[in-house]
Design a protein around this nucleic acid. Structure first.
Lengths: 133, 133
DNA sequence: CGGTATCCCGGCCGATACTG
DNA sequence: CAGTATCGGCCGGGATACCG
């Protein structure tokens, strides 16, 4: 059971995120990065404009939101729809690929949110037992 | 449909990761952070010792692995089992909570790995159309 | 083996100002 | 409204040395 061949049970994929050089690592970091995950989560509710998104993702700066959206658009997870009106209007929405990612991400997010009381308990316990030494 | 009340469909949870001050945001960042996700993923296969983990999570430094493990242990996702032998032996394994998180995380990771060809295509297309201007 | 302590650099990221 | 440009601080994180 310690032979490397069976480490990943059903895993003959060409991309292995555990390998340092694998491009999937980069995409995973866009997706799970500080703002990437929240942005995808926000867009899962529906298409949003730049400043709507900015308000929804509490705490993100213009620069980081812009940067995050570019990365997600480049990875094919988000579609940018610009209307050359005045004032300009730009809508962002998930692609089919982005929805697949967002669903799994939201499953994780909601699970964590749902277990926060346990996490907070664990935290208190850890700090009490180890904090005093 | 733009009333804030129905933004999150079945979401009456006390913790909202979209809010800047919510503690769930911190935990989510531990979980999805650069090394947190890979560490949980590695441990999902089974209990591992420090240096085994270090080898499995390609590219992580001693310092970051140590730091990551402390954060995950504090959040109650990882259990640390130290045997006071000589030489010392320490095993890390997921808690029940950690397994729940890891499952959802791996679902995301495997999905991303499986769609990397599409991502790479999107990337190439993005760079071709926009890169030349 | 299983860590911690220290140094230090790059780049993440926020703040601000500016553009179309 | 929807961004880009620039500056600067801070800290993530790698390298190295050291300890039990």
């Amino acid at each position: 059971m310690d032979t490397t061949q069976e480490r990943m049970e059903a895993q003959d994929l060409p991309y292995d995120v555990f390998a340092k050089a694998c491009p999937s690592r980069g995409t995973l970091e866009h997706v799970t990065g500080r703002w990437g995950g929240l942005t995808l989560g926000a867009l899962y509710e529906g298409s949003l404009r730049f400043n709507e998104l900015r308000r929804r993702v509490d705490g993100v700066s213009e620069k980081m939101l812009s940067q995050t959206l570019h990365a997600l658009e480049r990875d094919g997870l988000v579609h940018r729809e610009a209307q050359p009106t005045n004032p300009p209007r730009v809508d962002y929405e998930l692609t089919a690929l982005g929805r697949g990612v967002a669903e799994r991400l939201l499953s994780l997010i909601h699970f964590v949110e749902g277990q926060m009381d346990d996490v907070l308990d664990a935290r208190r316990h850890y700090d009490e037992t180890r904090g005093t030494l």
